[in-house]
Design a protein around this nucleic acid. Structure first.
Lengths: 336, 336
DNA sequence: CATTCTTTTGTAATCGATTACTGTATCTTA
DNA sequence: TAAGATACAGTAATCGATTACAAAAGAATG
């Protein structure tokens, strides 16, 4: 099937393809009348310059790839929303990839993107990876990359993160001030930078108030709801913390469920605080005290940074790091 | 800057580009040894066939576009997750567009996609549109389109929806059985098919139990949190319903907030049920009775349907309609 | 050994848009 | 009026991969 292309349009107008092409781009010389005539005809036939032909010729795709661990997650969907807004304003399109925390998929996505499909990548890394050298292949080709939130520390590229250490310190301190003496820290992957920073804030806050660190209170959880439920119940029964600080939203929910199951009252018997982007945290039973990251803002900043790399690479320091502040929002789950 | 392309690779191997190209596609004849040799070399140089060149030549993009009203929404992020999974299995990529319920953006996205960027479209429509003819331009070009959840009734194309009428009937019936006599129905856009079907279920359930229909109880809300809060407070104070059925998740949350503000007890003074894909509905205060759509499944089915259209168009009836069942999950917000 | 068939590889046209270069028409100015 | 300037439009090469067709090499057959 023959498509309606620039040749057809040129023929219909009695012009050459070069003239028609010029009508769609601003830089070249073409008379106003001719341009109008061409654009009118194009609208009539609903003609759009073929994206693949122009990109092949121009060597850029006006597309950015967004790689995230999961989609059905408040933080990431808000961040993507921010990215999408910036991209649309710039006339860029976004490709979405979900790794589901699978290292193989992450590598495979990145490798695929070497084929010119995207001009740049915005990525929040999966937790499982150990060997990140595949990303350096990337930088050889200079495909611009921006990390957000979850980063690999050994890869040098601009990043947008939040003040995780401070937030964790404050969150832990808040629990302590509310009277907690045995505070558990729940994490999904201790090795990921984000887990480490958040944990350090927790540790240092304990130290400041001279609360001894107990590693039975640091619990490495999984992505499985059922397993987490078991792990948490065991923690609550065997170790018996009086406060819980969760490094990811999902673990705060898991804590609620475990408490419901065990008939433990929040906040009377257990105070809970967690990193979370849930907009309806006030509606929970009890309303959840959160460390809330500016998710949409993070997406916007990451996209802006990537566009800066695309438009003026020399102005971007590869070590550039934008740090946004999370907010500690106190609610009933940590009341005295 | 000269890219590393098929020519370079061919030169490095002392072969022609056609032979190299054949190594990357299964159908053609090429000796096993040569193929191995080529693939090994390609790995060494980290070569990937340029996506734009092959798509230009092959006239398909292995990409599908997903257009949704919003991203930061449980239902849509779960649906996209389902679509992404199917697409990845098929080796397809997905482009994401958020219309933010803006008709202009919807039209603009669709028009842009005429340029060969995507092989097909999966879409949940924005509510604002009245003139849908721009979609028919689409079908002239036969760019396959699948609707999911929110559809335009006047456009003939396959669709994946849920049994909204039945669900609404059941939801309303459930409220009635719990003793409600003055049930409000909250909707965002009455004209959208989804609003209509859901409303009809509500109306018919009232009729079955001989409860007179009162149009003051049907409230058209907005996308603005602040405005909805005012509208709902007015409803609760002036009209004083004893039950609320919300056609979208957000309005159930808005009802909770309004009740908190007015110190109205749920479920004692007001029972609430709503369409919602919120996974933590059990954690709300009180836990929310929901009509839960199988969001991920809807995404999977929509993607499967689109791939069927791409792979064997003749097997797909343009009027095909897949209807999945939502689940009514009873929780505390509708207890007696 | 000559002939035919099969396997493997190469040549060159093609996809659609862009743009450097070239050509033509119109306008200015001495 | 002639020479140069300016505005506009066309020709053809190019981006990188694919593939119909052609060619060459090797295998099989009488």
């Amino acid at each position: 099937m023959q498509n309606f292309n620039i040749k057809e349009l040129a023929k219909a107008l009695g012009l050459s393809t070069s003239t028609v092409s010029r009508a769609f781009r601003d830089n070249s010389d073409i008379s106003k009348e001719t341009k109008e005539r061409i654009l009118a005809k194009a609208r009539e036939f609903n003609y759009q310059p073929n994206h693949y032909a122009s990109n092949l010729r121009e060597q850029r795709s006006k597309t950015i790839a967004v790689i995230v661990p999961e989609l059905a997650n408040n933080f990431f969907s808000q961040a993507i929303h921010g990215i999408e807004r910036v991209a649309r304003d710039k006339g860029y399109h976004i490709l979405i990839y979900a790794t589901e925390d699978d290292y193989e998929k992450e590598v495979s996505f990145i490798r695929h993107l070497h084929n010119g499909r995207a001009d740049g990548i915005i990525m929040s890394v999966s937790g499982e990876a150990n060997d990140h050298t595949y990303l350096n292949e990337l930088s050889q080709k200079r495909l611009p990359l921006v990390f957000f939130d979850r980063v690999y520390e050994d890869i040098i590229t601009p990043r947008v993160i939040t003040n995780d250490y401070d937030s964790s310190f404050s969150a832990t301190e808040h629990l302590i001030k509310q009277g907690c003496k045995k505070i558990a820290y729940l994490v999904i992957n201790k090795n990921l930078s984000i887990g480490k920073f958040r944990m350090q804030g927790y540790i240092d806050a304990l130290a400041k108030y001279e609360i001894p660190f107990d590693d039975r209170l640091v619990v490495d959880c999984t992505n499985s709801y059922a397993k987490n439920n078991l792990i948490l119940k065991r923690l609550l029964v065997d170790v018996g913390p009086d406060g819980v600080f969760t490094s990811v939203e999902r673990l705060a929910f898991a804590t609620y469920y475990a408490c419901y199951d065990l008939n433990i009252q929040i906040p009377q018997q257990l105070r809970v605080i967690g990193f979370s982007s849930l907009e309806i945290a006030p509606l929970l039973n009890p309303s959840l005290t959160t460390v809330t990251q500016p998710a949409t803002k993070i997406g916007i900043e990451a996209a802006n940074l990537l566009f800066k790399m695309l438009e003026a690479p020399e102005t971007v320091d590869p070590n550039e790091e934008i740090v946004l502040n999370s907010k500690l929002i106190k609610r009933r789950s940590t009341e005295k």
